[in-house]
Nucleic acid binder design. Sequence first.
RNA 1: GCUGGGGUAGCUCAGUUGGUAGAGCACGGCCCUGAAAAGGCCGGUGUCGGCAGUUCAACUCUGCCCCCCAGCA
Length: 315
Amino acid sequence: MQLRIILGGTASGKERLALECAKLLNAEIISVDSMKVYRGLDIATAKAGAEERALVRHHGLDLVGPEETFSATDFARAADRAIADIVSRGKIPLLSGGTAFYYKALLEGLFAGPGADLALRAGLEERAEKEGAGALHRELAEKDPAAAAKIHAADTRRLVRALEVIALTGKPLSGQQTQWAGFHAGGGGAFAAPRYPFVMVRLVRERSDLHQRIKARIERMAARGLREEARRVWENRSTYSRTPLQAVGYKEFFPYFQGGETWEAALERLRHGTNRLVRSQETWFRKFPAAELFLAAGAEVQEVAAELVAGCFSG
RNA sequence: GCUGGGGUAGCUCAGUUGGUAGAGCACGGCCCUGAAAAGGCCGGUGUCGGCAGUUCAACUCUGCCCCCCAGCA
């Protein structure tokens, strides 16, 4: 039994294609998406609705409330359970989504270190704020030169994590992170020892086509009540965890809710933010060991799905 | 029509007391091991509105013209 995986950035049309493939394969869909795991974040995340879920069973959606934090490891465990469940019922797991880090966590695994310690992080972040990220980098250089060499002196996020792991384990970080070895070897793209056998397909579209689709997608979201959903996130910002507050589709509207910015300007920033998101997703995906599937602007999804199921996804 | 302000990167604008220009955003590439739609790094871009004059040299000074904005008619 091998996993079927459809890789694609935001607005690439992967969900729609996954749905068609799932019907043909009698598969169930596992969403690989760091935002769709949150309940109540529906419109901005383009989460599958009741109709889609009635057609094909979905996993990986609505796993936690918006005030909880959720990690890549949490995702990998949930996905492990979903895969076992699907397979036990004689069905095929079809994964689709845009969060590259979650694929890495599931297929390659993360090192067996400690989880996040939010209080510890808060202290380190405060230091970075006051003394600059460079101070953290200098400290890391003393404690773990190899790790410091790999992390840029301005990358607060990773410096904090490295110092956190050292504080919690008493061991340097550099020797622990060995799971992804070989990923870059030979031009990149190979997983050294994948946790599951899989076939992976990557959706490719012209950038200009993608930008068009993003524009249309945002208009659709606005018509469906994005403003109200974003307002709810804004109003609950003190109790929601950081992740929903960082999602593309909410943070762009905060200046608008605060007053002083027009709705149109906010929509424009959302467009740019989504374009940027797609860029970074594609940077990851290009290196994944996937077969490329080019989708022309007007491609007929059902035909593509039929070909895919008869081709890469057969057997 | 008059007066004033302005025309510089795709957009918003800065700048050069004359030596052919820059920031932010956009756009593009890359990094990424428990918050990843986050965090970080790198990059190109321009007939400096047009034509003429002064000058070794004009985007910068002068003249004329065109366009935009505001006020007055």
